[in-house]
């Protein structure tokens, strides 16, 4: 498996949605993530796996434009012109965040407005993007609540009154309502009970397929990776040690670390 790719060549590949070349971030002398390069194609779901401290969350924060890496380039081809997300003005990056991109946080509290109703949470992106018809906003919000299996009667309740699983589903609706091209998810099922996780995974799988979303999912849970992702990147100590099609990586791991990871999971 060859993980050395030529960044120049990637950046020029017009078919990919996201081209990542040589992204590195350091915390003092410690490596956060180092020299990560890959391409993501439209509709593709990429998993980033590794133990905690492997740098996968750092990488996600860099890719999503939350943190600026110390080196590297991320090109996004959502619109007509490819955007270098670190060199565009903050304004453009913020616009991207509420239109073509979405971020699903591990803790729904980080992604939701806890004192705004479920309907307001889902409707915010629509209003961000200029919607000014209350009835239509509400209609869309209701539609999305149903798609994430939240009863219509809860539309005016606040997320505080929701269970953890419902909060997470609400966060997903809030992100997907603007029909983004690319969604970043950080341990989307973390902190949930196993039965709740299963339901959420099922839902995510359906939504991602139906909408043809491209997604980058960070998880330490290989079962989640197996279920949701097409392709997998394994990280250790801030570096990508192995990547390939998900089934291939999980069933026939080459790198010793990946072998260790997969063997630690009894039932995949």
């Amino acid at each position: 498996m060859n993980i050395q790719v030529n960044p120049q060549q990637l950046a020029l590949d017009p078919a990919s949605l996201l081209s990542v070349a040589g992204v590195s971030r350091f915390y003092g002398e410690r490596i956060g993530c180092a020299d990560v390069s890959f391409d993501l194609w439209p509709g593709e779901v990429l998993g980033i796996v590794g133990e905690s401290g492997s740098g996968k969350s750092t990488l996600l924060r860099c890719l999503a434009g939350i943190d600026k890496p110390d080196a590297g380039e991320v090109l996004f081809r959502g619109g007509t012109e490819p955007l270098d997300i670190y060199s565009v003005a903050e304004q453009e990056r913020r616009r991207l965040m509420r239109t073509a991109w979405g971020i699903v946080h591990q803790n729904p509290r980080d992604g939701l407005r806890m004192d705004v109703s479920a309907g307001g949470n889902v409707g915010e992106r629509l209003m961000d993007n200029g919607a000014r018809h209350y009835g239509k906003i509400r209609e869309t919000a209701l539609d999305w609540l149903q798609r994430v299996e939240i009863a219509a009667g809860r539309i005016d309740d606040r997320p505080r009154q929701f269970s953890g699983g419902m909060q997470q589903r609400l966060q997903i609706a809030r992100v997907l309502v603007s029909e983004p091209r690319l969604v970043f998810m950080d341990e989307p099922t973390g902190g949930l009970d196993v039965s709740v996780q299963a339901r959420l995974l099922d839902l995510l799988r359906v939504l991602v397929r139906d909408l043809g979303l491209a997604a980058i999912i960070v998880t330490h849970d290989l079962a989640v990776a197996r279920l949701l992702t097409d392709r997998l990147m394994v990280m250790k100590d801030g570096r990508v040690v192995e990547q390939g099609l998900t089934d291939q990586v999980l069933d026939d791991p080459h790198h010793a670390y990946t072998q260790l990871l997969t063997s630690a999971v009894l039932t995949v």
């Binding site: 939240i150 009667g153 953890g164 009970d193």
Partner: peptide
């Protein structure tokens, strides 16, 4: 008697 709210999971 409106529909009962969704039970917490």
């Amino acid at each position: 008697n409106e529909a009962l709210p969704e039970a917490a999971e």
